[in-house]
Amino acid sequence: MAQNILFYLAAVMAVATTSMVVITRNAVYAVLYLIMSLFAVALVFLSLNAPFLALVEIIVYAGAIMVLFLFVVMMLNLQGQRGDEATKRPTRRQMIVPGALALLLLILIVVSLSAGTPAATNAALSDPKLLGELLFTKHYLGVKLSGIILLIGTIGGLHIGRGGSIPSTMEKPIDDVTH
């Protein structure tokens, strides 16, 4: 029961903070709201008997990825540009169609989920050791692929980040060969 209360608290918090991410005008606040949302989801993981993933969520998502966001936001100093369109909130008229569509999507997913059979078992496993064994036996290829994706992300980030100066050299006209 305590776990269920924890779940509902976390769920409400997740929905609220995630909504704030979309709504808020200040990018730093948005990042902080997202971090809170991630913490809430981590709590949901705990209530789903997945403590290891809860920790991973906090460490990797909130700890590593969101810090990267925060770093970029602080570097670009977005809250200093209040008049800029970039931080403007969407108007109500702009919200109508996408909002309706998103709502429709939500309803559709919920409907399609409820069409299935109810939960058969609750005996979720929570042992990180077993998870590790599973990862490195059955999902061995997936682990390899994840590593490659990370490598590609690293190389891509490096290349694009460096690429700011490349076009200026590329655009230099090539001298015509004249005989």
Partner: peptide, 29 residues
Amino acid sequence: LPINEALILSCILFSIGVLGVVVRRNIIY
């Protein structure tokens, strides 16, 4: 375990995310 509720929560979060992608104009958002 609150499995169905967790699934519905995931749907809600996903929809909010979709809404954000569509309505926000700032690339960071």
